[in-house]
Design a protein around this nucleic acid. Structure first.
Lengths: 222, 222
DNA sequence: TGTACATGTCAACGACGGTTGACCTAAATC
DNA sequence: GATTTAGGTCAACCGTCGTTGACATGTACA
């Protein structure tokens, strides 16, 4: 993910306007980082252009519009990153580990779907794009790994993970800021396990104390 | 947007420039609804002004700036709504019920902290304001109700709830859109119970993230 | 060689939205 | 009655940002 030394070397070697030299790719790369770090509105084409070292107009015309650039970024970022390509047993460990990472890591320039999602979840123009990507690249593949094939659990899991990600990396809520310790880390893992957990047969009607109250709650408002 | 019949009646009854007639209050009310339904950037002072039936300039000058208006809105919305003023046993029911509500309900003019939070969580200018309100009005009072006095569980709970709220009301993720049914509703309640759940003593050390044995913990709080 | 096309730059347009200042009007005050 | 003052309008300012069009340059190809 460097763009730097090597690429610039190539730049010089190949001349400024060498056709193939993938300015497009470099724009995408820069955009990826920007959108993972800032919201849709915060991310300005001019900044991306500056990152790459070209003019805004070129950024714009290369992709047709900011929206289309974002769409490509999302598509790339949501590319099956094999985050889910593990046994169900390892899933919570994997996901917890991801959440544990100290921060959206621009130092390593690792861009994860979660980064993009978390940063842009509320931007009106980004929402439709993210919704589609979520369904296609997250909820569906995740659901297919669960005993319960319905997408609801998968969506619920994604929602909770995103919530935690937002509170940590965007809102920067104090108590969640530190490295998850022995106390909170396993709790997160348990939440994940609970959601992806055993068969849906978890018996909605009878058991948990929350059930009774849930019933009344459902019928009450209004 | 709303504030129609009754308000306009008052308007006429009292004359256009009746001093006390709390134009300020009406602005706040309109702003509350706007910010609960749209993001910070989406919410335009001009719209709020139109809602109230006055000029933008007045809205602006009444509060000094958009930011300060937002701050007041947040302060009001986060006012102890006694969402947490229940026994711990009822907490998950209460919170689940809140999440169950069909949508951010502008018809009933019920504005909840969750609405405001969920809509504005990513707006750069809103974040510092929300962070403060979260800590003061949510995490702290919530934490005080838990066995585990540390604010981490409370923050974690808030994060998950916000995530679910965002996916439902903002992203509008398909599988979470319908009313929570018997299947997913109790699951949410169990998640909540798990987080606020039993003593932190849940053995942090031994539990590997993928440890399955803790399912019961969810179903037997208290 | 000349023409086409890709790769760029530069300057400006145009919409939007928070903010500001001049001004108007009607109560309240002296 | 004159003056202050709060409540309010109107028009314009100003910065930002996606977007567009005119133009330059170099490589490819007939």
């Amino acid at each position: 993910m460097a763009l730097t030394a090597q690429d610039e070397g190539m730049m010089q070697r190949l001349g400024t306007s060498r056709p193939g030299l993938d300015t497009r790719g470099r724009i995408l790369e820069a955009a990826l980082l920007r959108f993972a770090q800032y919201s849709y509105e915060e991310t300005k084409l001019r900044d991306i252009a500056a990152d790459v070292g070209i003019d805004v107009a070129l950024v714009h015309r290369t992709f047709g519009s900011k929206e289309r650039l974002f769409t490509e970024v999302v598509t790339i970022a949501f590319q099956p990153r094999q985050l889910f390509a593990v046994d169900r047993g390892e899933l919570s460990a994997r996901l917890t580990a991801r959440l544990l990472e100290p921060s959206l890591d621009q130092a390593l320039r690792v861009v994860d779907p979660l980064d993009i999602l978390v940063r842009n979840l509320l931007s009106p123009e980004a929402i439709p794009i993210l919704r589609a990507a979520m369904a296609r690249d997250v909820v569906e593949p995740l659901a297919s790994k669960l005993d319960d094939p319905s997408p609801q659990r998968a969506a619920l899991l994604a929602a909770c993970l995103a919530g935690i990600g937002i509170f940590r990396h965007v809102l920067r809520t104090e108590p969640l800021l530190e490295e998850f310790d022995d106390h909170i880390g396993p709790l997160v893992a348990r939440i994940i396990d609970l959601i992806i957990g055993d068969a849906p047969a978890a018996d909605p009607r009878s058991a948990t104390p929350s059930d009774r109250s849930h019933q009344q709650a459902a019928s009450s408002p209004e």
